[in-house]
Design a protein around this nucleic acid. Structure first.
Lengths: 188, 188, 188, 188
DNA sequence: GATGAATGAGCATTCATTCAT
DNA sequence: AATGAATGAATGCTCATTCAT
């Protein structure tokens, strides 16, 4: 691949990251191309469909999250590792509309293409989860799929609220609610 | 109103309920009309804009939920009333993509028209919440806006999962996580 | 024809007169029906197409103008009769958008259907004109068609101006310009 | 700008000129595109709204007329310059339905966007007019707005007549009537 | 390879006309 | 005969995708 081609690919990915983060999957591709400073044709040379671009962006983000989960897998305190990762993931993903869209499953086609990467993240998170459950920090009746769904839901909730001035919502409190709900309850 | 008009209005509302429930606000009006077995002009006669139709559908659903919340307001046990309503709301609203869209605030314009009804629901829910908080059943650091957002998020999560066969998620467990997170924690 | 049918026909014509006068041929028929207090179906019972209704309205107006021209045909002073009629016609027709549309020939189909009545008016006006020309009051190089066109143009001009606050125009002056232009010029 | 783009822009403008000239602002954009041999999207690329296209066409025509008026402003004989311009304008604009629409003020929105250019023309014409009035060639009781309205009306009249074979009208005579009406009358 | 112009299917909405009630 | 609901073709505009330059 020529140097300028590689550079354009980078520019496009960066622009797409920003655009998708701000507006979700709804952004016109022309705007992505404009942000990247290239023509839409160039975009299509690198990414044959809009979904391919979207997937590329989300793929990268999912892998970053998966990597982070992997790092946390060896931490001394399984419970702290798990809840630390949850907090990290919420913090990182909340402002990325595309992740919210992707994790929430907007459009069934996305799922198939992203399934592998999403599965990878789910596996890593599942490992963290299982370890935390074995250590007694997290409720035992929870599958990795449930957890991913709950995270996706929280992200969605945070997205919606950031636009609605009439109903103020507190990211800290909402995350705390989720974490408390995930925690094992001593009395039970 | 003439019999055929009422019938078609019913058909349209029903078709719109189904279509919006399945696909959210994104469904083409022509498809709603097609599902109802009428022409697009007929749809227009009954609902002058797409938003009017969407609002009619969501309005009804929001009012049902608000009514249910009002009923619960006088129950003997404030905590049980609150958690019972949360479970009811999740059960009812989960398969309705439109409610998820509306509660999640997809598109600022919707909000203005539905704000009144959504606000009504929030108020009723807020009353249940406050009472449950005073009774010590629900954590005190939670606003009505937070709660609505969390519910909206959970609904979104459930919607997304219902389409994703690869990542099974359990509505019961997820609702339990939310409810446990909402509950006051004795030890704190 | 039943009494109520005749009455509805009257109501419709009256409503159409008003609506067409105010908005020209562009008014939706539903609005005409609404103004008349009847259903659109009733409108169609009496007038099989929109154009038929339009023609009925314009027909009546043209006949009134023709009658007025006929009255003026015997006046003592041919010049005064002619210019008096011109002023009358401008005064009457200026606020009737439909007449402006019809005389201006908006839509070729109209012309065919209204041709007979418009021709009748043209004939009467032509008689006034010829008499005034013979008396030396009006320039001789003017045909009845020219005159009708000029009148239609003046009406159009007055219509446009009444909407444009940036370019004030004076109906009196404009009519005077036309009349002076029509008058025979002594020096020639 | 690329060669093909410029070519298509030219084709579109030309097609729009013809279509607007023949049918006024009422032509469907799809027909303009069809005439130009391009898709509707291409039209949109060059002219983002229908009004933008209309304005582009009319703008050009108005500017040509304004330029012509400016040229005439320094002529030796103010009266001849004025009447010459009137004749020129009638000749040029008569077959252009769009100019008639624009000058006649069809639709208030047009006015805002074209107001500047139309105002420019009115100013230039007003200059010619004032000079001719000072020289005693043109009646003093006439504003620039009146003149523009009269011109617009004459154009409208000529348009209408060109479609009506039953009522022959003579452009020369009609223009002469207007000009004579505009001229100062010695005897008054 | 890059560019950006062209494409055309698709959408919400309007309104003259028809037809069941 | 009246009613007003239903029809559906048409319009301006958008945007993912293709293709000439």
């Amino acid at each position: 691949m020529r140097a300028d081609a590689r550079r354009n690919r980078e520019l496009l990915l960066r622009a797409a990251q920003d655009a998708f983060a701000e507006e979700g999957i709804g952004v016109p591709l022309d705007e992505v191309a404009r942000r990247a400073g290239v023509g839409p044709g160039t975009l299509y040379r690198h990414f044959p469909t809009k979904e391919a671009l979207f997937e590329a962006v989300v793929h990268e983000r999912l892998r970053e999250l998966a990597a982070r989960a992997r790092e946390a897998a060896d931490a001394a305190d399984p419970g702290a590792a798990f809840f630390g990762f949850v907090a990290h993931m919420v913090r990182e993903a909340a402002p990325k509309q595309d992740l919210v869209d992707a994790l929430g499953g907007a459009g069934a086609e996305l799922q198939t293409a992203l399934a592998a990467t999403a599965g990878e993240l789910r596996e890593e998170v599942g490992r963290l989860l299982a370890r935390a459950q074995r250590s007694g920090a997290v409720r035992p009746d929870l599958g990795a799929g449930d957890l991913m769904a709950l995270l996706s839901g929280l992200l969605h909730a945070l997205r919606g609220r950031s636009r609605d001035p009439a109903a103020p919502a507190d990211q800290e409190v909402m995350t705390a609610v989720l974490c408390d709900g995930l925690a094992a309850r001593p009395g039970r």
